[in-house]
Design a protein around this nucleic acid. Structure first.
Lengths: 218, 218
DNA sequence: GTTAATCTTGACCAAACGGTCAAGATTATT
DNA sequence: AATAATCTTGACCGTTTGGTCAAGATTAAC
C-alpha cells in the first residue's frame, strides 16, 4: 500500500517533470545530431550544440553530463534505426522482394536521415572506439541471422553461390554512400543535390544491378 | 654565363639542402597520414604528428607553417592516387577488362592504403571544405571522360542501358568501403581483418556482381 | 505560504590547442 | 676563418576546450 502510494506519487510527478526533461533532451539530441554530423566528434563543441539547441551550455551539461554521454545517446538512436531497417528483409520470403525492400529501405534512410548516416560513418572511420562491442555482439548476431536466410536462397538455387557477408557489405556500402558522400556527388552533379527523380533512378539502378548481379533476375 | 653559373650553384646547394628538406617533409607527411586517419582533422594535433614523426613540434611548423597547409599536402597526394587509379580503365578497350581492372585497382588501393582512403572519406563527410573546388573542376572533368566511354559501350550494346555516373558511384562506394569501414568488417569477422584469401574472394565477388549486374557477363 | 525538488544560468577553471620566437646548432660558400 | 643560409629547439602566448559551481528561478505538494 505505502509502496503503491509513493509509486503513484513518483509517477505523477515524473510524468510532468519528464515532459520538461524529455522535451529538452529531444532538443539537445536534435542539435547534437546536426553538429556531430557537420563537424565530427572532435570538431563538435558543447558550445555549438547548446547554441544550436538555443540553451546555455551549462544547461546542456545539466541534462548530459559529458560530451561523450551525449554522443553515445546519439549513436544508440542511430543503431536502432540501422537494425530496424531490416524489417522488410525479414518479412519477405522471396529473395527478390526481401533484398529489393531492404535496399529500398536503406536508400530511403540515406535520403531522409543523411546526418545520422554520416555520424555512424565517422564513428566507424575512427575505428568504432565507442561501439566496437555493440558491433561485435549485437550487429554480429543480427548479421548471422540474415546470412542464414541468404544461404538458404543459395542452397535452393534462387540466387548465385556467393558469400552472403560480402553481399551485405556491398549493399551497405552502396546505399550509405549516397548519404556519406553526398557532398562529392553534389560536386559532380553541377553543384546540385540529386533531385527526387535522380535519386529514384539511382535507387532503381542500384537495386537492378545488385539483383541481376547475384542471379536473382532473369 | 653569370646566370648559368649562379643557376648551377643554386642547384648544387638545392640538391643537398633539399635532401634534408625532402627527407623531413616525407617523415612529417607519413606521420600526418597516420594521425589524420586515426583521429580526423580536428582530432589530429600538431603535437601528435610531430611526436609520431619523432621531431619537436616547432620543427614541424618550420616545414609546414600551419596544420591546414600540412593537411592540404596530404589531401593532394591522395587525390593524385585517386586519379591515377584509372589508368587501367583507360588502357583497356573492352568494357569487361576496363571495369575489372579499375575495380581491381581500387580494391588494391583500399587494401594497401586504407589510411589515405579514410582521410579522403572524412574530408567528404565534412562537406569537402578544402577540396570542393578540386572536385567540381578536376574530378568532374575526370568523370566526364569515363562517362563518355561507358556511354559508348551502352550504345554499342556491350552493357545494359544505365546511368554511367551512378555506376561509378557504386564502384567507388563498394571498393572504398573495405578501407573506410574496415573496423566494422573486422568486428563482423571474429575481430580479425580480412585475410588475403578473404579479400581476394571479396574482390572477385564484387567484380562479378557488378559486371554481371550491368549485363557485361552473360 | 512554506518546503523541497528540479531546472536555469553567468562566471569561472585547468588543460590543451595552434602557432610564434629568439637563440643556438649545422651546413655550405668564400 | 669568416660569413651566410638553413635547420633545430625549449619556452612561451592568446584562445578555446569540456566541464564545474553556486546562486537564483520555477514548479509541485502540503
Amino acid at each position: 500500500m505505502k509502496n503503491d502510494e509513493s509509486l503513484v506519487k513518483v509517477r505523477t510527478k515524473s510524468v510532468r517533470k519528464n515532459q520538461i526533461r524529455l522535451s529538452n533532451e529531444r532538443r539537445i539530441l536534435a542539435a547534437a545530431v546536426k553538429i556531430f554530423a557537420g563537424f565530427g566528434y572532435q570538431g563538435a563543441t558543447t558550445r555549438k550544440i547548446a547554441e544550436e539547441a538555443g540553451i546555455p551550455k551549462a544547461n546542456l551539461h545539466y541534462y548530459f553530463q559529458t560530451k561523450e554521454q551525449l554522443y553515445r545517446r546519439v549513436l544508440d538512436g542511430i543503431f536502432k534505426d540501422w537494425l530496424a531497417a531490416a524489417n522488410t528483409f525479414d518479412e519477405c520470403v522471396e529473395p527478390i522482394e526481401a533484398l529489393r525492400g531492404y535496399i529500398e529501405t536503406k536508400m530511403e534512410l540515406s535520403r531522409k536521415r543523411p546526418l545520422e548516416s554520416r555520424i555512424w560513418a565517422e564513428e566507424i572511420l575512427r575505428g568504432a572506439p565507442l561501439i566496437q562491442h555493440e558491433l561485435e555482439v549485437t550487429l554480429s548476431a543480427w548479421l548471422d541471422t540474415r546470412v542464414k536466410r541468404i544461404t538458404d536462397w543459395i542452397n535452393a538455387g534462387r540466387i548465385d553461390a556467393l558469400n552472403p557477408r560480402i553481399l551485405m557489405f556491398m549493399i551497405w556500402a552502396v546505399t550509405q554512400h549516397f548519404a556519406d558522400f553526398e557532398s562529392q556527388i553534389r560536386a559532380l552533379n553541377q553543384q546540385q543535390n540529386l533531385s527526387d527523380n535522380q535519386f529514384k533512378e539511382a535507387k532503381q539502378q542500384v537495386t537492378r544491378i545488385i539483383l541481376k548481379g547475384i542471379g536473382a533476375l532473369d
